[in-house]
Design a protein around this nucleic acid. Structure first.
Lengths: 341, 341
DNA sequence: CTGAAAGCGCTTACAG
DNA sequence: CTGAAAGCGCTTACAG
């Protein structure tokens, strides 16, 4: 392979001069710099990443730790991943993607071998066992997902409390007084999917304040069971006029379920969901919804992380907890409830 | 950070002895080896990845080059990605995920900086501009997706020709004589999605052999346009009794379209798709389908790549082109056409 | 079976 | 403004 020694020889300068000419870290005579650049062109020189990392203690690589919960909707993770990889690249970093089950072990491995300059953790749980290791690590970390304790890390998430409230407020303003909430499977919650109960609790609390009857359920994440779940919930609450969905599979199954029951949206029932706009368009999820903001969250986490890596954030500065405000994307699936229903 | 020098000092041996004790590349007295391992434990030593890469010319990292086409169904990519990252980890490798637009540039960057030991390319096009660079690179490469020229690379893909034939054969055996094929958007084909026309051409050819009337269309990849497309196709061919879908959005939109037209599956119309089983269950895609085999393909590509990286494949050995045979997963959406229809 | 030393390819104080 | 040299933390022939 071609090294900086080759470049130096061809350019007729020392290796240090070649290095400085390329990094611009000290003044170089224009003519000398031109010769160096010419040699680089001629030889097709690219610095060896391992050697540079060894010399500088910076790898220009970010470790991205994904986390997949059984029964959770995995494909949604891709949008966070792409937000991270694209933003990282724009800032000059590559991304090492780790998907292994044992995230703690992976984190230890990458941190102690100095393979990365920092970490982005996806799908962070309320009491995420990866956080202990992360706080001990020499590299900084940014989270997508809000844990119980946020000290020592920067946190980015959708405001799920605000999301639960917004869903209920929206239905309340239209005049609805009895609602059904379908969350992700209970199993997801048990494994640490805090956003599920955070949204549900906020919705229940707001409903209680407003005098709304809110029936909160967990639903399955796959067909045909989610279809059966939906029918069961609707049977149990024949007077409910609105549905809140925090479950992609429920949003996909609902149109058929409603059609079979002869119900129309929004004339007979109003629906509001929480899922990605991309999925809505690809998978015919025809309901007004609050977007997950996956790309935005992934990018924000990387920006903050890189700022820390590059020392652009003062040592003493407090850690960031940034929650994105929910916004309803109107697809016309909510209206005032039928009079007398 | 703790280095092998620290380990050597604590264990009371030389650095080379410490290194050999850990690598097992030469015989070490059991007692000495025990002292070294103890020191490693005590100090919490992990080799520095950059230093090791510099010394050995092996990074133990695989470069994964994703490729996203406009209008193509991006989330499906995650299943390939996870197949790759999981298999890689099981074989002792980490994965650098690159999603940038300019795949040629990314490939050049990773190859020339020696950041990775080999490459996996996803969604390879008929004449993929990344292949030229890959063939010049010092590192081996494995593809998911079949290009026109396969020399110098190992190739893994679903047999899309076989898939097109199988769809037609299956319908033919049931007695269908007029079919509609809905492919991904034309735009995907133009950007190099060869699998789309490969399946379509094979289906057309087989249909011609069997005397079947096959109407092949491109469909949009999002709602509401794909719903309009489907209605248009069905209007144009009122006597068609079977639908072949190579388009996820079409599979998601079809149930509503058929319901509105008062058509039942499979009594009035038979349907067979090509998409991932995971999506089928999450997104209520209720049709018999041929699975994409994403996980299997990603894993196979990594296995072959690692075998090459580690020199377990003889220099002169021919490159592999491995096509997975399509299999129909029966969801009961096909039957004999209604008599007299 | 073990140690001292060279070398991987960079960057960056240190001298001039 | 430039060069010679040290050092980053490993691995591995070379000697013994």
């Amino acid at each position: 392979m071609v090294t900086i020694g080759d470049v130096a020889r061809v350019a007729g300068v020392s290796r240090s001069t070649a290095s400085y000419a390329l990094s611009g870290k000290r003044a170089i005579t224009p003519a000398v710099r031109a010769k160096v650049l010419e040699a680089v062109q001629e030889l097709g020189y690219t610095p060896n990443a391992g050697a540079r990392a060894l010399a500088t203690s910076h790898t220009k690589v970010i470790g991205l730790l994904a986390r997949f919960l059984e029964d959770e909707f995995a494909p949604a993770m891709l949008q966070y991943i792409l937000g991270v990889t694209n933003e990282a690249r724009e800032l000059g970093y590559d991304t090492l993607l780790v998907s292994e089950e044992d995230g703690v072990h992976a984190l230890e491995r990458l941190a102690s071998s100095r393979m990365v300059d920092g970490f982005v953790l996806l799908n962070v749980a309320e009491n995420d066992d990866r956080l202990g290791v992360l706080r001990q690590a020499a590299q900084p970390g940014a989270l997508v997902g809000l844990p119980e304790r946020t000290s020592g890390v920067d946190v980015f998430d959708l405001d799920f409390v605000g999301t639960g409230r917004l869903m209920v407020d929206h239905m309340h303003e239209l005049g609805h007084r009895e609602l059904i909430l379908v969350s992700q499977p209970q199993h997801v919650v048990e494994r640490g999917g805090a956003y599920v109960w955070r949204l549900a609790n906020a919705a229940l609390e707001r409903a209680a304040q407003l005098g709304i009857d809110l029936h909160a359920y967990f639903g399955s994440s796959t067909q045909p069971s989610i279809g059966e779940d939906l029918n069961r919930f609707l049977d149990a609450h024949p007077d409910a006029t609105g549905l809140l969905l925090n479950n992609e599979a429920a949003a996909a199954a609902l149109p058929s379920v409603l059609a079979e029951r002869g119900l129309h949206v929004p004339a007979d029932v109003s629906v509001i969901g929480r899922y990605s706009d991309d999925f809505a368009r690809t998978f015919s999820l025809p309901f007004s919804s609050i977007d997950s903001a996956a790309d935005e969250l992934g990018r924000a986490a990387v920006q903050q992380l890189v700022a820390r890596i590059e020392g652009r954030i003062p040592e003493g500065a407090r850690n960031v907890v940034h929650l994105i405000s929910p916004e309803i994307l109107d697809r016309g699936s909510t209206a005032a409830p039928r009079v007398g229903s």
